[in-house]
């Protein structure tokens, strides 16, 4: 059994208590909402994308500690990244929390996002950790409709 502290690391508890980049974004030119119909969690990601670069990013919504902290750290990690870097980071993050074929890996250069590696031991919580990322992906793709984790 993995220790709960592996899941609820101090960094995660801190970002849940004080989410960074939280609120609307006046200059946003893309937004997308992620919904987890199972628990009712809702996260909207606002992006200001210029010349293929994430110039600014903020998020709003309600959810559990894992989904809020994940959204918060995501926004910190993506500022001033290119669209391609953002997509690549999404894929590495997804591989870290939901290892394909059960092969665990710790992708390089995850920075603070590495704190979420413990989520892979709690399969029911993977959707919480990836909710904001799915909304990000939809916003980057310019999708209007809310994306669902289901």
């Amino acid at each position: 059994m993995s220790d709960l502290r592996d899941l609820y690391q101090e960094l995660i508890l801190d970002h849940n208590r004080r989410p960074r980049n939280f609120g609307p974004l006046a200059e946003a030119n893309r937004s997308a909402k992620g919904i987890n119909p199972l628990c009712g969690d809702k996260v909207t990601v606002h992006l200001q994308v210029e010349d293929g670069q994430v110039k600014d990013i903020r998020f709003e919504g309600t959810g559990c500690a894992i989904s809020i902290a994940s959204a918060s750290v995501m926004t910190e990690s993506l500022k001033r990244q290119t669209r391609e870097d953002a997509v690549s980071l999404f894929e590495r993050f997804h591989r870290m929390v939901a290892p394909a074929d059960g092969v665990e890996s710790d992708p390089p250069d995850m920075g603070k996002l590495a704190a979420f590696a413990g989520v892979r031991d709690y399969p029911a919580r993977v959707k919480c950790a990836t909710l904001a990322w799915h909304a990000l992906r939809a916003a980057l793709d310019g999708k209007e409709k809310a994306v669902s984790t289901e």
């Binding site: 709960l4 899941l7 609820y8 199972l38 628990c39 969690d41 559990c64 894992i66 709690y122 919580r125």
Partner: peptide, 25 residues
């Protein structure tokens, strides 16, 4: 504290509870 976080912590204690909106939004 969000209900889902509580659900995970209780599950580690072997306790099964329901967390969420209970189909009664």
């Amino acid at each position: 504290v969000h209900a889902h976080d509580i659900g995970t912590i209780l599950d580690q204690e072997g306790i099964a509870v329901r967390t969420g909106h209970h189909c009664a939004m």
